[in-house]
């Protein structure tokens, strides 16, 4: 936990394409921003769901992949020097007495700012929870979706489920400390990096790891303490696998998360905004991109860009209450060009 306190003009929640472009639009009106995202890199859905997939409706670009668009936006916003805080989620939002907000992430980082821009898309990416009956009682006791501390697994019987990079990486990293480590996957083939797969099979040969084929269908234990799981093998038969700990790695899904507790009006898990300022029910808190809703809303990246531009105009009123904002074009304004570092 860090007790760091960062003071800034704006905090942008979400580093997807719209959150990134918000850095640009805020930057043009001299608003300094920090960006927080639960993923470990920028791009949001573009990076997580379709980095290689083509997008055909970004104006001016005939076709661009999610990753390319992210890279281009990162390049475009560089002059504004926004600071990024990855792999953490904003847990709480508090109003400050003198106006403004304090945000705290799950890593304990604190931010004080004048405006908040929620560009959280479909919500924050969180690990998928297998729909196994009763799994809730074991979570954070015997069932973990991430590894915060390797030491917590020392001397324990560990079952890792999945065939992607997370499953393989943690198999390799926990094997040295675990009492026993079993990797369970539904098939012989893996999505993970071939080098890690090879390392895992080497360990299997040397007896350090047990690899089994199948899918978990039931959990057994008491009071949150897992004792075994039932596994359905590929031939349809079932067997019991003894284990104290299970780590399921089935990818990520989007969940609205703590935004719901920030005292902002919600409508079907979306944040209603007005279409002039893209402000939520709370003054100084904006919502842009897929997370907002208004009559005629389309969940398009280009709509989010437009929303970011209008949001920045209103944000300027809060950050610089005594300054008049004069609308300018980047093509002709020397002051804007100076901010962009092109003059």
């Amino acid at each position: 936990m860090s007790d760091e306190l960062i003071k800034t003009d704006a905090v942008i929640v979400g580093a997807g394409p719209v959150g990134l472009f918000a850095v640009f639009e805020l930057g043009l009106v001299d608003i300094k921003a920090h960006v927080i995202d639960n993923l470990d890199r920028p791009g949001g859905q573009c990076a997580e769901l379709y980095p290689e997939k083509p997008i055909y409706d970004v104006p001016g670009l005939t076709v661009v992949t999610g990753q390319e668009l992210t890279d281009r936006l990162m390049e475009q916003i560089k002059p504004f020097g926004a600071e990024f805080h990855f792999s953490q989620r904003v847990e709480s939002l508090d109003r400050l007495d003198g106006g403004g907000f304090r945000l705290t992430t799950d890593l304990g980082k604190k931010f004080e700012c004048k405006v908040v821009v929620i560009a959280a898309g479909g919500g924050s990416f969180t690990p998928k929870r297998p729909p196994l009956p009763g799994i809730e009682q074991y979570e954070d006791k015997s069932v973990f979706y991430s590894v915060r501390k390797i030491e917590n697994f020392r001397g324990r019987d560990v079952l890792i489920v999945g065939g992607g990079d997370s499953a393989l990486d943690w198999t390799l990293n926990l094997q040295p400390v675990a009492k026993s480590l079993t990797l369970l996957h539904r098939r012989q083939e893996f999505r993970a990096a071939p080098a890690s797969v090879q390392k895992m099979f080497d360990l299997v040969e040397r007896g350090g790891v047990t690899f089994k084929l199948g899918q978990v269908t039931e959990l057994h234990g008491q009071g949150g303490k897992l004792t075994s799981v039932t596994v359905k093998a590929s031939d349809g038969s079932s067997f019991e696998q003894k284990t104290e700990v299970m780590l399921p790695f089935f990818g990520l899904t989007m969940k609205l998360g703590p935004v719901a507790n920030w005292g902002i009006n919600l409508h079907e898990n979306l944040l209603p905004v007005d279409t002039a300022k893209f402000e939520t029910s709370e003054k100084g808190i904006f919502a842009i991109g897929d997370i907002n809703t208004y009559p005629g809303k389309l969940k398009l990246i280009l709509s989010g860009f437009h929303e970011a531009a209008l949001m920045a105009q209103q944000a300027h009123h809060y950050v610089y209450p005594n300054k008049k904002l004069i609308f300018q074009y980047t093509t002709s304004s020397s002051s804007l060009q100076k901010k962009l570092g092109v003059k």
Binding site: K128, G162, E189, R191, T217, K232, F250, G251
Partner: peptide, 11 residues
């Protein structure tokens, strides 16, 4: 698709 089915339940 086969790779992505790893992320499905009860395949």
């Amino acid at each position: 698709e086969e790779d992505m089915l790893d992320f499905a339940f009860d395949v």
